[in-house]
Computed example of a mutant assay.
Amino acid sequence: MDEHGSQLYHPANRTARLSVIQEILTNSVVSSQAQLSQMLADQGIEVTQATLSRDLDEMKAVKTRLRTGEMAYTLGIEPEHDDETAEKIDQQLSRGLSSLVVSAAAARNLVVVHTPEGAAQYVASSLDKQSIDGILGIIAGDDTLLLVCADDDVANQRMQWLLDIVSSRRGGSGR
């Protein structure tokens, strides 16, 4: 289950497995392959140690000493998203997306975002690469993307957050 009580199901393929590994390493402190293997098994994904090793190597996951002194697998950023890290991510998104979001509107648990023609896939990909609380998934067309949020309140918060990011208005990271 995700943090909102929704059960997530993953197909039994390599792409889904890599996505789940990325999600786990981004949001959790994982100190061993055995621990990661168990976390995958808890989500219904069985994997051999050799396959897991190859996956981690392909993803360029490395064991890093965290600020806490603990050794854990990371994907280039520590899994602990403090306010400073969230602010840096927000600034990067602001630079990359500021001219690409034309409008945004919340409708129940959804956020509809309009972009210039051909930009929706790029915007969706940029947002997908971040671990944004409350967003269950993003669907993109040519000039429109749809953020599926956990609930109505999250949709309103994410819409305002996105508008703040692309408008370069600061006021906390909102993550």
Rank of each mutant, 00 (worst) to 15 (best):
D2Q: 07
D2N: 15
E3C: 09
E3K: 07
G5T: 04
G5F: 02
Q7F: 03
Q7I: 03
H10L: 11
P11R: 06
P11D: 04
A12V: 09
T15M: 06
R17N: 12
L18V: 00
V20F: 09
I21S: 09
Q22I: 00
E23Y: 12
E23C: 03
L25F: 07
V29M: 01
S31W: 04
S32T: 14
Q33G: 14
A41I: 07
D42E: 15
Q43G: 09
T51W: 02
S53N: 13
R54D: 11
D55G: 08
D55R: 09
D55M: 00
L56Y: 04
L56F: 06
E58F: 07
E58G: 10
K60A: 14
A61E: 04
A61F: 10
V62R: 15
R65M: 13
R65D: 06
R67F: 10
T68N: 10
G69H: 01
E70P: 00
E70V: 15
M71G: 05
A72D: 11
L75I: 00
L75E: 05
G76P: 12
E78G: 13
P79W: 10
E80M: 14
E80K: 13
D82G: 12
E84Y: 14
E87D: 13
Q92E: 05
L93W: 09
S94D: 02
S94F: 11
G96F: 10
L97G: 03
S98L: 09
S98N: 15
S99L: 06
L100N: 04
V101F: 08
S103G: 12
A105G: 01
A107R: 14
N109F: 01
L110S: 03
P116R: 07
E117Y: 04
Q121S: 07
Y122C: 11
Y122S: 06
V123H: 03
S126V: 02
Q130F: 01
S131G: 09
G134Y: 11
G134W: 05
I135P: 02
G137H: 04
G137L: 10
G137E: 06
I138W: 07
I138A: 01
I139E: 08
A140V: 04
D142S: 12
D142K: 08
D143N: 15
D143C: 03
L145K: 00
V148W: 01
C149A: 12
D151W: 07
V154L: 02
V154I: 11
R158I: 06
Q160H: 02
W161L: 01
L162A: 07
L162E: 05
I165E: 05
I165R: 11
G171A: 05
G172T: 06
G172D: 06
R175Q: 09
